[in-house]
Structure formats: structure tokens, C-alpha cells
Design a binder for these strands. Structure first.
Lengths: 201, 201
DNA sequence: GCTACAATCGGGGTAAAGTCCGTTTACGGA
DNA sequence: TCCGTAAACGGACTTTACCCCGATTGTAGC
């Protein structure tokens, strides 16, 4: 077997493509920090990275795709802490405690990256919507799997709980609310999540 | 007091403006049904409605704004059924039963309008984000208010539960999943919601 | 009915997203 | 090391959302 994970896996990214992808992500992150999400245009990104616009679009498909890639990147680091950090977030604590800790951590994570996360939304679906299950879902499902839920629809429950965690930041809370007291909002989300979970499980 | 609801209310919409707004909404709804959300462009809408492009933008501010207006419109009808229909959805049943019934109804409502609802999303915030609280939140809050929740953060709990209901359709489920078995998905969301609520309250 | 004002209308203009295709380049095999 | 191929590159091109401002029109007050 080669490095490909499974049959039908991606046919191995070419070296220059990988280099450019990394370079574009780094440039995008820099521009995001300097100027904010709404000022980040594809043309500007391409120019600042010293690459063609076509390259940017082939890599990320969509403007939202760039922010999604950035977010995925951060989520991977986050997931490391979740999987290998100390309890109760990491392994070793009872599932319910881990679920609660996960909610607190995710709230902080998302609020810190609220601009990125919102810019990653994309009402259209044609190509950009990846069939990849978010890591967040995988983790919640894993924890719920260790609980006794009767005959509940685990798959849908996972998605609903993820919605309870992400919905406030992604959909409902205004940017003003999020910006004026980020830590306060994160704490409220975490606490409300804890109340909800303790009440349910 | 005049027709204005409160101090600082909108200075009364001019008659022609109102007529055009209604006409644009009707035209948009028609185009949405005929060609789908992604083929609905502002130019086409303006032309088909026999109005100028500028008019369309002044009315709705944004492309997403049109879909938001359409959705608001439908939600108002829906809310009527919720407020004055027969129990358990309407008044007369215990709060928990009404909450469960509301989840089922909302799932059906949202799935039937999934394209509209997704197109109404808009990652940007500057102008389009209205400070108006969605009717959905108002209603959930009303029902939760009748329950004993200890010292829980009612406001955030409402938003989280709304996220649990809307998140699947708006954020996570792929368009393919939604399109292939809409009724099935609605039923799963409704059932999972019921399980969650029964477990919590 | 008439007038002054303010809001609406209209459509041309700008900028940014996304597409296309001819050119260039990495990389596996001989 | 060289070659053939498939993938990546680049930037001109098209489409579309959104802005602007002079022309037009509804409405309150007389």
C-alpha cells in the first residue's frame, strides 16, 4: 500500500501545489489578522502571495473555501488538545464531564474565530460543500456513544447538539454582541451548555 | 397614537414603495419556484418585475435580504398557526408538549423551504443583520418561560435550542441528503428533538 | 387643487467572484 | 537522464452583487 488512505483516495497532491496551498493559507491568515475578513479579496490574496488568481480558486474553490480551510487548520490543532490533553477535556474523565468540557472549549474556540467562522459559511452548495464530517461531530458522537441513550437517533442527536453549540455564534448572535464582550458570551454559552447537558444526561 | 408601533418607528412606507415591495416578493417567489435559488439574480428579478435594479436593492439591501424577506413572510403565516391553531401546537397544551410539537412543525417548515433558508444566510454583517429577534426565538422563549428552569440562562438556552432545531438544515446536512428524502429527514429531526426535549424537561 | 419636500425610482458604473483555456511544470517510468 | 502525461499555473474574460446620483413621483399642509 502507498500513502493513500483508502481506495479512491486523492491521487496525491503535487509538491508545488502543496507548497502554494500552505503559502496561500499563511498569506490569508496574515491578511485576515491585518485587515479583517471582509477586506480579504481573492485578487488581493493572489497578488500578495505572488500567484495567479486561477491558482487560488483551484485550491479553495470559493472565497468561503479559504476561510473553511483556515478553520479546518485551527480545528486540527484544537482537536489534538481534545484528544491528548488532560481531563476532563482529554481522555480519562467520564463521558458527560468530557462533553461539558468540550462545550466550554468549543465556545471559546469559535468565539475567538468568529469572523473566520462566519466567513466560512456559504449559502450555495453546488461544489464547495464537502461531504466531510466536521471533527466536532465526530467527537461529540464518540462521547455520546459511550452513554446509554435508549433507542435515540444518535446521528441526528449529534447534529442537533452541534447546532446548539455552533448556532449561537454562527447564526444568531449579532456581531456587535460577539465583539463587545467575547469572553462573556463564551462563558454564557459554556454555562448554558453545561446546564443543558447536566439536565439531559 | 398613530399606526407607528413605537417611538422612532419607521416613518411610514410610501404607497408605491409598498406596492413594489409586494410585487418584487411575488416575482421572486415565482422565479424561485421556477428556476431555483441560485439562478435568481438581482438583474433578472428587476427586469421581470419591470423595475429598476436600484429599487430592488433599496428595498432588500442585499441578495440574501430578498430570501430573508420571503422567509419572514412565510414565517408569519406559520406563526399564526402556532399561536391560534389547535393544541398541542397551539395554545391549550402543556408547555413541554407544545415545545415538542413546535419542533416537529418547524422541522417540516424549514425543510420545505431549505433553499430559501440557506440563501437567506449571509456571512457578512455590516448592514443586513437585523436586530430583530426571530419569531422562532420569541416563541421558544415564551414556552420555556412557563417551565421551571432553576437559575438557567434563559436567553442563551433559547438560542441554543433554536440552533439545535435550525442547525441541521441550515448548517450541516448536505443538500443531497435534504433533497433525496426531505420527509424522512424532517421526521428524524422532529423525533430527535422530541427525544431531547423529553429527556430534558 | 397646488406647492415644497422628501422619498423613491432608474439604470449606468465599479469591484469582486468565479470561469476558461493556452502554457508551464512536476513526476513516474524507460 | 530523458520523455510523456497529467496536473498546476496564470491572467484575461464574464457575470453579478452592490453603489451613486440625477430625474421622478407620492404626500402632507395650505
Amino acid at each position: 500500500m502507498g500513502q493513500d488512505a483508502a481506495w479512491g483516495a486523492a491521487p496525491a497532491e503535487r509538491a508545488d501545489a502543496a507548497r502554494n496551498r500552505l503559502h496561500l493559507l499563511a498569506t490569508a491568515r496574515q491578511m485576515l489578522a491585518e485587515q479583517g475578513a471582509d477586506r480579504l479579496t481573492m485578487d488581493a490574496l493572489a497578488e500578495r502571495a505572488g500567484l495567479g488568481k486561477g491558482t487560488v480558486f483551484r485550491r479553495f474553490g470559493t472565497r468561503a473555501g479559504i476561510f473553511r480551510a483556515l478553520l479546518d487548520d485551527d480545528e486540527q490543532v484544537f482537536q489534538q488538545q481534545v484528544l491528548s490533553g488532560p481531563p476532563p477535556l482529554g481522555p480519562g474523565a467520564p463521558p458527560v464531564d468530557r462533553l461539558i468540557a468540550y462545550g466550554w472549549a468549543r465556545a471559546v474556540f469559535l468565539i475567538e474565530r468568529r469572523d473566520m467562522a462566519r466567513a466560512a459559511l456559504d449559502g450555495s452548495q453546488p461544489v464547495p460543500t464537502g461531504p466531510r464530517t466536521p471533527m466536532s461531530h465526530v467527537h461529540i458522537r464518540m462521547l455520546l456513544g459511550q452513554l446509554d441513550l435508549g433507542g435515540a437517533d444518535l446521528g441526528m442527536l449529534v447534529v442537533q447538539l452541534a447546532g446548539a453549540l455552533d448556532g449561537p455564534v454562527l447564526l444568531y448572535l449579532s456581531s456587535d454582541e460577539l465583539a463587545s464582550t467575547p469572553e462573556g458570551v463564551a462563558a454564557r454559552i459554556g454555562q448554558a451548555w453545561q446546564d443543558l447537558v447536566e439536565r439531559c444526561f
